[in-house]
Design a protein around this nucleic acid. Structure first.
Length: 484
RNA sequence: GGCCCGUUGGUCAAGCGGCUAAGACACCGCCCUUUCACGGCGGAAACAUGAGUUCGAUUCUCGUACGGGUCACCA
C-alpha cells in the first residue's frame, strides 16, 4: 500500500478561481505522476458560507480541464463519504479520543467571555489567545457540565513549553515555539469539526500521502504535527504552494473582480491553454519547453520545480500561450470554434466562413479578438483618406486614385471570381505598369476594407466579399478620392 | 504588533560556491511580405541591501529594508 493518494478539498463557497484550479492541478499531477489516486473531497463544514451550486461548478471545471478524480462524492470510493458534513459523527469520536489521551480538553467558555477576553488582550497589546480557562477542569467538573447540557467545544491541548517542528517538502523545516500556539478549537459547539481538525482526521482516514494546499495554511501547520503525534498517525507529506497574485500586493480573487476559470473560457481562452499557463505560474519545467498537454505534464511535473515566492498572473503571457494553442489547432477545429465569433459581426450569408477562418487562425490570440477583425466584411466602415498615404508603398491620394481606376477596369472584366484569377489579373496590371506591388495592392485593400489592418490582403478580401461588393466599394472609394 | 515565509530583467522564471547569469512573454530593430499577423534574426533589460564564512559568493550564515501570510466556534 505505498500508493500515492492526493486530494483536492475545496469548500463550496462559490466560483472556482485560478489559484484553486492550480492547486487542484498540482495535486492531480503529483498523484498521476506516480500512477496514484486523486480524490475529491468537499469541505462544507461551514454551513454559513455554503453557496448553492458551488459544488457543480467544482465538478464542471475539474471535468472540463480533465482533472478526473478516482474517488469522490459523486462516484464514491472505499473511504467515503467524501462530503465532510456527512462525516460528522466521525470527528466527535476522534476529538473525544484526543481528550482521553490528554491532548485535548472540553471547554465551556461562552462566546461573550471569549470576545471580552480578546478585547482585553488587544487593548493591552497582547496578541489574542485563549487563556486556557477550561484547560485544567477536573474530570468531575467536566462530567457535571456535560450532564447539565452546557454547550461545549473541544480544544487542542498545546504543550506549554518547547518547540514543534513541521516539515514541508518545499519550505523545509519550520520550527515554532509552542508558547506561540493557541489552544485551537477542534470540535465546534455545533458538533462540526474545524477545518484544521477535519483535515487531519480525514486525510488520515482517507489514506492521503501528499497534501497540497495554499501557503496561507503554513502558519497553522505545526499544530498538525502535535495532532498526528497524539493520534500516533503517520504524517503525510505537505506541500504548501505560494499564491497567485493580481499584482505585487494583492492576491488574485473574485472579490477584486479577477477572472475565474469560467470567465476566462467565456473570454475566448482554450481550457488547455489556461491549464498550461497556470501550471507554469509558480512552477518551472526542467528543459526550455513550455507548451505541455495535461498528459505531458503528468510525467514532466516535479515538486522540485515549484517556486517559494508568490507569482503575478500575467494576462499577456496567457494570451500568447493561448495563441500558440490556437495556431496548433487543425484548420477544421479552428473553424468550428471561430464560427460563432465570426458570425457576431458577419451576418451576411453569401460569403464563405471557412475562408475567413483560414485568414484568422494565425491572427487570433483570443477568440474574442475575432469579431472586430472581420467587421468590415458586412459593411464598409467610414475611413480616413489618409489611409492611402503610405511611404513604404509609395502611395498617396493621387496615386491611389490612379491605381484604383485602373484596377477597377481590370476587376470588372473578371468573370471567374476567384483568388487565383484576381491575383493573376492584378499582377498582370502591375507588370504592365511597371510599379511596385504595393502601388496597386495597398490602395485596393484599403478601398474595399476601409481599414488599416485586415486579416488577409486585397485578393483574399475581394474573393470573400464577392465581385459585386468589391466593385461597388471600389467605385465609392474612387468617388471619395475625386471629390476631396 | 508577535510568529512564520519570501526577495534573480517589466512579468513568469533557470541557477543549487567558480557561468560572458539560461529561456519565455512583453518591448525595440531588421528580414520575409500587398497591410496586419505568422515565421526568422538581433537588441536593450536582473541577482533588494550591509556584514560575515570562503581562495572565490546570485548560491551558505546573520542583520537591515521591502513584500506576503497568520494570529476566528472561516476555510
Amino acid at each position: 500500500m505505498n500508493e500515492v493518494r492526493t486530494r483536492f478539498a475545496p469548500s463550496p463557497t462559490g466560483y472556482m478561481h485560478i489559484g484553486n484550479l492550480r492547486t487542484a492541478l498540482y495535486t492531480y499531477l503529483i498523484a498521476k505522476k506516480q500512477g496514484g489516486k486523486f480524490l475529491l473531497r468537499i469541505e462544507d463544514t461551514d454551513q454559513e458560507r455554503y453557496v448553492e451550486g458551488a459544488v457543480d461548478i467544482i465538478y464542471r471545471t475539474l471535468k472540463t480541464v480533465g482533472l478526473n478524480w478516482d474517488e469522490g462524492p459523486d462516484i464514491g470510493g472505499p473511504v467515503g463519504p467524501y462530503i465532510q458534513s456527512e462525516r460528522m459523527g466521525i470527528f466527535k469520536q476522534y476529538a473525544v479520543e484526543l481528550v482521553e489521551k490528554g491532548a485535548a480538553y472540553y471547554c465551556f467558555c461562552d462566546k461573550e467571555r471569549l470576545t471580552e477576553l480578546k478585547a482585553v488582550q488587544e487593548a493591552s497589546g497582547v496578541s489574542p489567545m485563549y487563556d486556557r480557562h477550561c484547560r485544567n477542569l477536573s474530570k468531575e467538573e467536566v462530567e457535571a457540565k456535560l450532564a447539565e447540557g452546557v454547550p461545549y467545544v473541544i480544544r487542542q491541548k498545546i504543550p506549554l513549553e518547547g518547540t514543534t517542528t513541521f516539515h514541508d517538502e518545499l519550505f523545509g523545516d519550520i520550527t515554532v515555539e509552542n508558547s506561540t500556539l493557541d489552544d485551537q478549537i477542534l470540535l465546534k459547539a455545533d458538533g462540526m469539526p474545524t477545518y484544521n481538525f477535519a483535515n487531519v482526521v480525514d486525510d488520515h482516514l482517507m489514506g492521503i500521502t501528499h497534501v497540497v494546499r495554499g501557503n496561507e495554511y503554513l502558519a497553522s501547520a505545526p499544530k498538525y504535527n502535535l495532532l498526528y503525534e497524539a493520534f500516533g498517525w503517520d504524517i503525510p507529506k505537505y506541500i504548501h504552494v505560494s499564491p497567485i497574485m493580481k499584482d505585487k500586493h494583492s492576491k488574485l480573487s473574485k472579490r477584486n473582480g479577477d477572472a475565474s476559470f469560467e470567465d476566462l473560457v467565456a473570454k475566448g481562452y482554450l481550457s488547455e491553454a489556461i491549464v498550461n499557463y497556470i501550471a507554469l505560474l509558480g512552477w518551472a519545467p526542467k528543459g526550455e519547453r513550455e507548451i505541455f498537454s495535461l498528459e505531458e505534464l503528468k510525467s514532466e511535473f516535479d515538486i522540485e520545480g515549484l517556486s517559494k515566492s508568490p507569482s503575478i498572473f500575467d494576462p499577456l503571457k496567457l494570451k500568447a500561450i493561448n495563441g500558440e494553442y490556437i495556431r496548433a489547432l487543425t484548420p477544421e477545429k479552428f473553424c468550428e470554434l471561430a464560427r460563432p465569433y465570426i458570425m457576431q459581426t458577419v451576418k451576411r450569408t453569401d460569403c464563405d466562413l471557412d475562408k475567413i477562418a483560414v485568414l484568422l487562425q494565425n491572427r487570433t490570440e483570443v477568440f474574442t479578438d475575432i469579431p472586430e477583425q472581420v467587421d468590415f466584411i458586412d459593411e464598409m466602415p467610414d475611413y480616413d483618406l489618409a489611409l492611402y498615404e503610405n511611404k513604404k508603398m509609395k502611395t498617396n491620394r493621387e496615386t491611389a486614385l490612379d491605381a484604383l481606376e485602373r484596377s477597377l477596369l481590370v476587376l470588372e472584366g473578371i468573370t471567374d471570381w476567384h483568388f487565383d484569377v484576381i491575383h493573376d489579373e492584378l499582377f498582370k496590371l502591375i507588370a504592365d505598369m511597371g510599379v511596385k506591388n504595393g502601388y496597386i495592392l495597398w490602395p485596393v485593400r484599403v478601398a474595399i476594407s476601409g481599414k488599416q489592418f485586415t486579416p488577409g490582403g486585397a485578393f483574399e478580401i475581394a474573393e470573400i466579399i464577392g465581385k459585386e461588393d468589391t466593385l461597388s466599394r471600389m467605385k465609392r472609394s474612387i468617388e471619395m478620392l475625386k471629390t476631396r
